[in-house]
Amino acid sequence: MSKIADLDTQTQLELEAAAFRRLVQHLDERKDVQNIDLMNLAGFCRNCLSKWYKAAAEEKGIAIDYDAARERVYGMPYSEWKAQYQQPATTEQLTAFASKPEENK
């Protein structure tokens, strides 16, 4: 069994890219899981993932706007996803979100 530390850089990148694609696919399959649920439980959501994608592109000198990054993560324009799948946040969800430290929002 290989240790991660023993993998070459290209293999590490390929595995990380595959894991990212699988995460995006999993989130796409779980449209019932709202972003506020993800934020409350894990401290990140689809929008965070979009921002990280955009930041990673910028680190490589690639200009990608936030809407394009969101479309990559959501699999469609955000406005369409929001109209089709986003539910109004419940009082409980909003209360849990409000109780989080600012750096976790």
Rank of each mutant, 00 (worst) to 15 (best):
V73Y: 03
D65A: 06
H26C: 06
A55E: 15
A56L: 13
G75Y: 03
D32E: 15
E71S: 09
L49D: 02
D65F: 05
K31N: 13
E59C: 09
M39T: 08
A68G: 04
A18P: 02
G75D: 00
C48Q: 05
A19H: 11
D32C: 06
R70V: 05
Y74V: 02
N35C: 00
R70P: 00
H26E: 12
Y74N: 03
L41C: 08
D67I: 00
K60N: 04
A42Y: 14
E14I: 05
E29T: 06
G75N: 02
L15R: 09
I4G: 11
R22V: 05
K31R: 15
A17H: 10
E71G: 03
V24R: 13
G43M: 01
A69Y: 03
R70S: 08
R72W: 05
A17Q: 14
I62Q: 14
T9D: 15
M39I: 06
D65Q: 04
L27C: 01
E59I: 00
A18L: 12
A18H: 12
K54Y: 11
Y78N: 07
A68Q: 15
G75T: 00
Y74I: 02
L7R: 06
A69N: 08
Y78G: 01
M39N: 11
Y74P: 07
S50V: 02
Q34W: 12
Y53H: 12
A56N: 10
V33P: 04
D67L: 07
A68R: 10
R30V: 00
E71D: 11
E14P: 02
D67A: 14
Y78W: 13
T9P: 09
W52N: 01
R72Y: 12
Y74R: 05
A57P: 02
M39Q: 13
W52H: 03
M76Y: 07
A42I: 02
L38Q: 03
N40D: 10
A69I: 06
A63K: 11
I62M: 12
A63S: 07
L27V: 00
H26P: 00
Q34G: 05
K51M: 15
A5F: 06
Q12A: 07
D37E: 15
R30G: 06
A57S: 10
D28Q: 14
T11C: 05
A5K: 12
S79N: 09
K51G: 12
Q10F: 09
D32S: 13
D32P: 05
R21G: 09
D67Q: 11
E14M: 11
Q10Y: 09
A69K: 05
A57I: 00
A17E: 15
G61I: 08
H26M: 07
K31F: 10
Y66N: 12
Q10L: 12
D65M: 04
A5P: 04
L41A: 13
M39G: 04
L27R: 01
I4K: 08
L38Y: 00
A55W: 10
L15Q: 13
M39P: 03
A69L: 09
Q34A: 09
T11V: 09
T11K: 07
Y78Q: 11
Q12H: 04
V33E: 13
I64R: 12
K60Y: 02
R21L: 15
C48I: 01
V24S: 11
D8L: 03
Q25V: 05
R46W: 06
V73C: 01
E16T: 07
A69W: 02
N35H: 00
T9N: 13
W52T: 04
F44K: 00
I64N: 08
S50G: 15
P77T: 07
Q10G: 01
L41K: 10
